[in-house]
Design a protein around this nucleic acid. Structure first.
Lengths: 217, 217
DNA sequence: TGATAATAAGACCGATCGGTCTTATACGCA
DNA sequence: TGCGTATAAGACCGATCGGTCTTATTATCA
């Protein structure tokens, strides 16, 4: 439905509360409230549709990377982090890709029903990361806490997206992306690090150096 | 001013937009709009006052820990993380301690002036962490990127606070706190780890184990 | 005592907005 | 040709809310 897309766009710019039905109608190029209320019972219903639409986009173009059958698990994670950074930069750090897009944040905060939806997406996202780490166990240290790792990554990315948005600067997100790779790396067995795609980064140097120090004690 | 405190309280519960001037008046126990407009030019001005008040509380009861002259730098960081987790749990994961309190988030998103204020506080917070790491250099690996570390911590904590709020569950924040200590730990020189207060945690076991593996390659 | 300011209470205006309802035109299909 | 549905346009209602203005009472201080 074109209405949902238009609403997603304009709400992404102005927020849910700040967007009137007339704004949506205008953005969608259609005329008359009657037309709108022919499709949607209320603004709230439109809100749910917009949330779901945003999540679909996120799941299809983002989360899908985490399941790419052609790549080993850690390479997929690497791709995914890249995707987040890139798609955020593309949009000039304003509009949101993730469930922490300004819109979802606002909506989760102001309406219990919306909050539950956002929560559910977080769960889906975390679950998928967890599955990825489960799959990557052979490359990782024995006692790895897959759930903890997954939650840590989601939370850090969310925070980074939020801060980048407030600062209007991708730099924070990039810093965090680098830090996260390093963090994940520290859960990868040493003998697997050369193969791990997460290692194909400049920060590997740092990791390797500190590893050197450790073995040198 | 009692008005600001009342406004902070009620807005913390309902958000900025959702709070009417009458709500504030009622919460503050005073009567008549005249009284309110005697002190504040507009709702926007009240918004600034509320933001500043929130930040003062955060700076005085939170950031102050980062400068405690009685503790070594990494111990202060440890205390600070504890403080965040505890004060968040105290408030039932709803109202915000940090500049990512639901309120500041909403306001930053909806008003350029507010955004700048929130940004400024992030800067202050990051700066203080950076100073702390600078002070802790002797205990840390040589090439440590103090700014990157500081930004990483702030972003992760923000994200964790946000997710805990959405999930209505401190668990995420606790996970992230543990992860962060571990992350910081990986930037501490091996020969300093026994002394480092960040090590006084159960996850040290994990770190030490993986260190064992590393030196065993 | 008298002037100034703080407190109290609330009527009122103008604007916005969600939602309903009416009316009229265009299109698809039997 | 005729019926139903999608499109178009917008008047209208009721409610909320920010902000102004009025009025009256209580402290404060010279």
């Amino acid at each position: 439905m074109q209405i949902v897309e238009a609403a997603t766009a304009v709400m992404g710019r102005q927020g849910f509360q700040q967007t009137s039905i007339e704004d949506v109608i205008h953005e969608a190029g259609l005329c008359g409230k009657g037309h709108f209320y022919h499709y949607f019972k209320s603004k709230e219903e439109l809100g749910y549709a917009v949330l779901l639409h945003q999540f679909d986009v996120f799941a299809e173009s983002g989360l899908a990377v985490l399941r790419d059958p052609m790549l080993p698990p850690l390479a997929r994670l690497d791709e995914f982090i890249d995707w987040i950074v890139e798609s955020h930069a593309e949009r000039g750090c304003c509009e949101g890709v993730s469930p922490c897009g300004a819109l979802a944040t606002e909506m989760a905060e102001q309406h219990e029903g919306f909050r539950k939806h956002v929560d559910a997406l977080f769960e889906r996202w975390t679950g998928q990361l967890q599955a990825l780490f489960w799959e990557a166990r052979p490359q990782m240290v024995d006692d790895v806490d897959t759930e903890g790792l997954a939650r840590f990554i989601v939370a850090s990315l969310e925070g980074a997206l939020f801060m980048s948005r407030v600062k209007r600067d991708v730099a924070v997100l990039e810093h965090v992306a680098t830090g996260l790779r390093r963090f994940v790396m520290s859960h990868v067995r040493v003998d697997e690090r050369r193969e791990a795609p997460l290692a194909i980064r400049e920060m590997v140097a740092g990791t390797e150096r500190s590893v050197g120090k450790e073995s040198g004690r």
